[in-house]
Design a protein around this nucleic acid. Sequence first.
DNA 1: TTGTACGCGTTATCAA
DNA 2: TTGATAACGCGTACAA
Lengths: 374, 374
Amino acid sequence: MSRRPSLSDVAKRAEVSVSLVSRILSGDTTVRARPETQQRVHEVAAQLGYQPHGAARALRLSRAGALGLVVHEVSNPIHAEIIRGAQAAATAAGQVLLLSDAPELAANADAFAQLVGTGRIDGLMWQGSGEDYDDELVARAARQLPTVLVNSRPRAGVPALRLDDEAAARLAVEHLIGQGHRHIGYVGGRPGADLTERRYAGYLAALRDHDLPVRPEWTVEREWDAPAGHAAMAALLATDPRPTAVFVANVVVAVGALAAAREAGVAVPEQLSVIAVHDAWFVAHGAPPLTTVRLPLDRLGAEAVRLLLSGEGSPVPAGTAADGAAGGGGSAAMGDPGGGGDPVGGSAGRGIVLADPPPQLLVRGSTTRPEGMR
Amino acid sequence: MSRRPSLSDVAKRAEVSVSLVSRILSGDTTVRARPETQQRVHEVAAQLGYQPHGAARALRLSRAGALGLVVHEVSNPIHAEIIRGAQAAATAAGQVLLLSDAPELAANADAFAQLVGTGRIDGLMWQGSGEDYDDELVARAARQLPTVLVNSRPRAGVPALRLDDEAAARLAVEHLIGQGHRHIGYVGGRPGADLTERRYAGYLAALRDHDLPVRPEWTVEREWDAPAGHAAMAALLATDPRPTAVFVANVVVAVGALAAAREAGVAVPEQLSVIAVHDAWFVAHGAPPLTTVRLPLDRLGAEAVRLLLSGEGSPVPAGTAADGAAGGGGSAAMGDPGGGGDPVGGSAGRGIVLADPPPQLLVRGSTTRPEGMR
DNA sequence: TTGTACGCGTTATCAA
DNA sequence: TTGATAACGCGTACAA
């Protein structure tokens, strides 16, 4: 008996037809019902606690009212912030957010199908890590759904949203330069990854602007995690001469790098300044507290939602007959129309850079003037 | 033209009826179609890339195929691990996971209604923080949906899943005792919270078992975050005499506590040993690396999913007429049938303790023998 | 100003 | 061995 009230329950109690109830409750402006009827319908609906059934709506409107977000690893604080932004924006837009993780989807074809192929979501956001499967899965998803890459360059014809990584790197490196450093190393993430390259570009630009040397042995790239940062820093500290400061392309990597310096007996910041891109709550409590450049990651998530909702996600290519059974390889290679010169600014294009708010320098204890200058 | 293929598309191409296709594809054992027909249907379905429409299924079966998970803050590494476990279990069970966050739901009645009242999810998991709104919202949700509390005692008649916090605390404190500490302080979380109390109980039990003093001024409780840990540790260090070791009820709190010790010039572990409950990837890289007790948080999430799927979530009380419009307070107080003696073990009951795998001690650098004993 | 009828894509029941 | 048909709950075109 106590099943959820439906439109017809309301209709019965209010002694009108279902359709009228539907129109009144959905605020149809063209409906010109008697005020008293409207009143009554609203009252009954409230009294019954009526709420439209999501699935029925989805079926009728062929819109799920949900968006999907795929991240590579929830416990990465960077991803967490993206999730938070997306979550808030989705909620604000009356949508719900469906979370999934990339390795899972890569390993489990059913999971992928369940997320992408059943019409449960109206659009998909993908925060990848540069693994091979990312491109593959995104390409497949984009054939079925409006899709947008988060924190990446456009790839495989899928539009992408990213932050101004180059500016962030520049800001960081220029902070070091401003303190008097002239020997600055670079610790990146996964070699070849968009993010690494863009931040490296910013690093290079800053050095060149100030006529500082670029030494290949001071550029180390490993992976986007702390152990990689540890290894990279160890390698960097083994160079001779060694840099007096290091720019680390990611805060997670920097956590490992800092540990490596500590283990090597190199005091930060006294003997080595360290600065990283992105902020995380815990680094402020570290020893030393890490100086970082904060980027609006939450906006990244929020903007991705907006993009999808405004219909600017990857258009599902018409005529692309469905993908067939899970099957194999297929159409991997696609041109990368947005790869070259990224259109900048919030406008349409396929590669959108979120340049606002600009990167923000959070000076804490891991940077100082180089030894000779103190 | 290229809309998603439906059952009837498959039926047409295979020259059979929709219903037959439905039964064949869903593996109905009672269907005894010709092998060749079955074959053909499967082929056509694969060829067309047919996948059942989620909303239609949900409507027909009145089951959404989705579960909701509410956490208080995604960027908390503890929550992240719960999310990961729930996510994996949901996926494995062919369900999707819908993520939401508690403060958002508390602030936005529409968001709450959207999540809970529209039949989008078949069950709800709630990892609260002990805020007042948690109980209120959970009680409302439980009236409409199978609901389970995660990491909590049962409250408001809603069943709950938790870890063996007492054992974890015991293990931690006994490690300190084993190292020779006899003066051990306690830094908790939000006063009155389940978690704080249970871990405090473990702390007390360990002390009493070893005839160690319990000093009220060595018990400090503030909140579940790093700044609170900072304040708490500062308070603890101001006592005289001060403890030689501190048990911190949560790793996030411990991050702040460690920073406070550092700022106070108290060397960890030389002058003060610190140990905390829960592990997080970054504390291993800290200075000092934090000794922790790991609990199977991912299993907590996974088990919550299992509970909901097996129908052991809070039964929706029959006859409870719907809640009415968002409206106000209403029925807050309910008995707390599970509050007293918690039934232990994996069985039915309303308060389930996940005692397996048991808490695991991860000895790192933040604990050592007390000064006099070295 | 309001009601009837249809279809969204499935699954389940019944009939053939 | 297979097919027709009726729901599930909603929104909307059309009729009254």
